[in-house]
Amino acid sequence: MHMNGPMNISRTERLQTCNEIASRLHEVYGEKILAIGVYGSVSRGTDGPFSDIEMFCVLSESNESIDFSYEWSAGPWKAEVNVCSADVLLKTASTVEGDWPLTHGPFFSQLCLYDPKGFFPRLKEAAESPTKEDFRRAIHEVLVGEMYEFVGKLRNVSLNGPHTYLPYLAVEFAQYGAMLVGLHNQKLFSTGSMVLPEALKLPSRPEGFDNVVQMVMSGELAKPSKVVSACDNFWNGLVKWAAEHNYSINSKRFPF
């Protein structure tokens, strides 16, 4: 039977494609290239038969900062190549955002295809440089920018509907709750598909978090009252957790 989209490809074939992409990058960018590496499941050796390819192409620093991506499907496989100048990539690696537990794994480990000047060890050092206060700021941003907003939407929906929005909200509660747990523990998740089960294994989880995550992972999101109760309980647990760890949710009336 003909199959559209991703095809079953062996790891050997996928690595060969990575090397072909690297050769093409050398043809296009020549001496500007500082390093080339593979990240994601391919670099970890956990890629499946339908996994895509994700790569860094790092260019030497110049007067112009460069940051863009090639992303394409060649038919049986898909690839993404992030082309960045070294300064851009180092700055990104040293910055803590709310999704840090999911996005920063590539900065700590790559499958190196080309790195004659030792850039990737520098990249890892940059990724290890954020301070505890950097993580606190990111946690505050998630608490206020995401979780506080979600609970407002939850309470609006519980009063006025539509209840069809509740499953989506439950997923958001679980996902961003996992980001908070990862940030608090300064722990990276291995991949997007493992965020929730790996978060359940981390210490210092807010009360109510586990229940919401279990509901999401099991798909038991059909009863509106159950979803509202679980998410509201998690929010209450989150407020308590924030106070215990001195994370701020509320500020003075006007912070400026």
Score class of each variant (00 low, 15 high):
residue 2 H to A: 12
residue 3 M to Y: 09
residue 6 P to V: 09
residue 10 S to C: 04
residue 11 R to V: 06
residue 13 E to Q: 14
residue 13 E to F: 00
residue 13 E to C: 00
residue 18 C to L: 08
residue 20 E to Q: 14
residue 21 I to F: 09
residue 25 L to F: 04
residue 34 L to M: 11
residue 34 L to S: 12
residue 38 V to R: 02
residue 43 S to Y: 03
residue 46 T to P: 02
residue 50 F to M: 10
residue 50 F to V: 13
residue 52 D to V: 06
residue 53 I to R: 01
residue 53 I to D: 04
residue 53 I to Y: 09
residue 54 E to T: 07
residue 56 F to Q: 02
residue 56 F to G: 05
residue 65 S to D: 15
residue 68 F to I: 04
residue 70 Y to W: 15
residue 88 V to T: 13
residue 90 L to H: 07
residue 91 K to L: 06
residue 94 S to M: 03
residue 96 V to P: 05
residue 97 E to M: 13
residue 111 L to E: 11
residue 116 P to H: 08
residue 137 R to Q: 12
residue 139 I to D: 00
residue 140 H to G: 06
residue 140 H to D: 12
residue 142 V to E: 10
residue 143 L to T: 07
residue 144 V to E: 07
residue 144 V to G: 01
residue 146 E to Q: 14
residue 147 M to K: 03
residue 154 L to A: 02
residue 155 R to L: 14
residue 156 N to G: 11
residue 160 N to R: 12
residue 164 T to F: 12
residue 165 Y to R: 09
residue 171 V to C: 10
residue 174 A to P: 02
residue 177 G to C: 07
residue 183 L to G: 00
residue 189 F to T: 02
residue 195 V to S: 00
residue 197 P to Y: 04
residue 200 L to F: 13
residue 201 K to D: 13
residue 205 R to H: 03
residue 217 M to H: 00
residue 217 M to T: 13
residue 234 F to Q: 00
residue 244 E to Q: 13
residue 254 F to H: 10
residue 255 P to I: 13
